[in-house]
């Protein structure tokens, strides 16, 4: 059972960037996509920044396949629902008794664009940046150690949690628990299924705390890291430029919307 991680090692330029630089880059795409005005701004960010980055990181294929799987169903449903049922809009296409409204279609395009920019940014981060490296980098810059630990451990333990839930389901069905059928039956089945999961996790957490303590987790003093995070003067400047870019995008958005 492996960890819940999308990272693919392509030995690309993006893989070699410091995780904080990657984070700043993604932050810039996200802020620019959402703050700039107009229905087409998020599309522009997606096409001009996120997509070229994915190509540069050599993850274009997994990136597009994952993005399409999520965005396409959303785009179709939001277009149909908002287009057909927008109240009081201007009809532009007639489909029998129904019609697609101009305002509804614009709204659908806007929300699809935003989803694309947000999802694309996070997907790009997940595909090109190791979560553990990102958390180590954050911890080195003062993020609370316990917080970065929880993020990492949760990602790794999630698949195991699901396997445990399946075992509990099997064990209770083997004792004659009926889990299919009416809503009442399903609700009653929740208690025998969730309580072992919760109580089992509490036992696990206690053991994990002991194991961490035995590995000097709470020891104060300087820490070292096996994983070497590359950084450079250029990257540090780049990060500040990107932060400046984010602020500029927000100001530009406010000014242009007036």
């Amino acid at each position: 059972m492996s960890a819940f991680s999308l990272y693919v090692d392509r030995n690309s330029g993006l893989n070699r960037l410091n995780p904080l630089t990657m984070l700043a880059l993604i932050g810039f795409c996200l802020v620019a996509g959402l703050a700039l005005p107009g229905a087409w701004a998020p599309y522009a960010v997606f096409l001009l920044a996120i997509l070229p980055l994915a190509a540069g990181g050599r993850v274009l294929r997994p990136f597009l396949s994952a993005a399409l799987k999520i965005v396409l169903p959303f785009a179709v449903s939001v277009t149909l629902i908002q287009g057909l049922f927008w109240t009081g809009g201007t009809p532009i296409v007639h489909l029998g008794p129904l019609s697609l409204k101009r305002e509804g279609l614009i709204f659908a395009a806007q929300s699809t664009g935003r989803i694309l920019a947000v999802l694309g940014s996070f997907l790009l981060l997940a595909l090109t940046t190791r979560t553990d490296a990102l958390m180590i980098a954050l911890a080195q810059h003062g993020a609370p150690k316990s917080l970065t630990y929880i993020v990492l451990a949760t990602l790794q333990i999630a698949p195991r949690f699901q396997a445990k839930a399946n075992t509990i389901l099997d064990a209770q069905r083997a004792r004659g628990l009926e889990v299919e059928g009416g809503i009442g039956r399903r609700v009653r089945a929740l208690i025998p299924l969730t309580i072992p999961l919760v109580l089992g996790s509490i036992v696990d957490i206690e053991e994990r705390a002991i194991a961490l303590e035995a590995r000097a987790f709470s020891r104060s003093g300087p820490k070292t890291s096996l994983l070497v995070l590359r950084d450079s003067h250029m990257q540090r400047i780049g990060r500040w430029v990107l932060v400046g870019g984010m602020i500029a995008a927000v100001i530009l958005g406010i000014v242009l919307r007036r």
Binding site: K164, I168, A171, R175, P192, P196, G200
Partner: peptide, 22 residues
């Protein structure tokens, strides 16, 4: 037959008791 029906014929004791006690 459903698992619930089969359960009347074949009892199954799982390895880890904490996967079922509630």
């Amino acid at each position: 037959h459903s698992v619930a029906q089969m359960a009347a014929r074949a009892g199954y004791v799982f390895q880890n008791p904490d996967d079922q006690l509630f």
